[in-house]
């Protein structure tokens, strides 16, 4: 029975709070991972991403709130045996077993021994390693085996903590394509955390940004990216004259200098999208030679940087008055 048939969200967290001795690891977190969605979980180290995953899977008990998997309380997640694929705490393979035996062990654990792992091994470039003991694999190879294990039983929900951290770019792309394919073709719900934001942006369609256990952003990734102030990059001569022209333009919010591949360029934040042509014309009229001018694509990295920057500023402002009175 799949999530669609039951109408239950594959993964749901409502008001989840988890405290460690040093303070809250999670603070009132709400999250829904719908069927077929790829939710990117991002945040700086120590933000609470892994804790969130552990609570979501019933491996940690929350201090407040509730977590459920396919409508079943997370503490009873074993009732969904075989429906959840997991990559947490690194590869976590059985070192004395071969690659093929590690996958078979996983299938037996879920009462599905004899599941054919060959297509997955082939897809992840592991066929030649099938008879090699896990203790003799490199870190990247071990992670690939762990990914094969997570995908082996065609789960309805995948929870993946840093799945591409130790993979080379080509394999990272293959792995991410596999996730996207699972979501698209089988409706697998995916919660994936990563510090590799460019890679994550390629597959995620929703985003949850955590900072110090709190949710800073949550929603449709495209909509969140659209909230970033539009910007244009300009390479021109003379640069100072170009800056003077742009600063005076009513569409321009700010102008900053950047160095890209050893060349100094201007980053121009504009009030609206589609200002590139107008700025180009203004520079030409002012007699500036424009080498290149192009709108900047809003990226997850930019969204991440800005949101955390705002959070840091807000927390600094909240602390400052107290310091002044003390």
């Amino acid at each position: 029975m799949n999530a669609g048939a039951t109408g239950q969200a594959p993964l749901e967290l409502i008001g989840v709070t988890k405290r460690w001795r040093g303070g809250p690891a999670l603070d009132g977190v709400d999250l829904v991972v719908p069927r077929g969605a790829v939710v990117g979980l991002v945040g700086p180290s120590g933000a609470g991403k892994t804790t969130l995953m552990r609570v979501a899977l019933g491996l940690l008990e929350p201090d407040a709130g509730r977590a459920s998997v396919f409508g079943v309380p997370a503490a009873q997640i074993a009732r969904n045996s075989g429906r959840v694929g997991l990559l947490l705490d690194g590869a976590a393979l059985e070192p004395g077993l071969t690659v093929a035996d590690n996958l078979e062990l996983h299938a037996i654990r879920h009462g599905r021994g004899g599941t054919d792992a060959k297509p997955l091994l082939e897809r992840l470039g592991l066929t030649r390693l099938a008879s090699r003991r896990a203790s003799r694999l490199s870190q990247g190879e071990a992670i690939r085996v762990a990914l094969a294990r997570a995908l082996l039983l065609a789960p309805d929900l995948l929870v993946l903590d840093e799945p591409v951290a130790h993979l080379d770019p080509a394999l990272a792309t293959t792995a991410l394509d596999l996730f996207a394919e699972a979501a698209r073709e089988r409706g697998t719900a995916i919660l994936v955390s990563s510090h590799q934001l460019a890679e994550l942006e390629r597959v995620a369609d929703r985003l949850l940004l955590l900072h110090q256990g709190k949710v800073l952003l949550h929603g449709d990734l495209a909509e969140l990216l659209a909230t970033i102030t539009p910007a244009v990059r300009v390479a021109a001569r003379p640069l100072e004259k170009a800056r003077a022209v742009l600063v005076r333009d009513p569409q321009v919010r700010s102008v900053t200098s950047l160095r890209v591949d050893g060349v100094e360029v201007l980053r121009v934040e504009t009030a609206t999208n589609g200002a590139t042509a107008a700025l180009n014309a203004a520079l030409h009229v002012a007699g500036v030679a424009v080498d290149s001018i192009a709108p900047e694509r809003p990226t997850l990295e930019e969204l991440f940087r800005r949101t955390l920057g705002k959070a840091a500023t807000a927390s600094h402002e909240a602390v400052a008055p107290r310091g002044a009175t003390g």
Partner: peptide
């Protein structure tokens, strides 16, 4: 120790 306990707990209850 090797981080594979969650894999077991996803399959069967702690009592099992």
């Amino acid at each position: 120790d090797q981080g594979s306990l969650p894999q077991w707990l996803l399959a069967r209850s702690r009592g099992d």
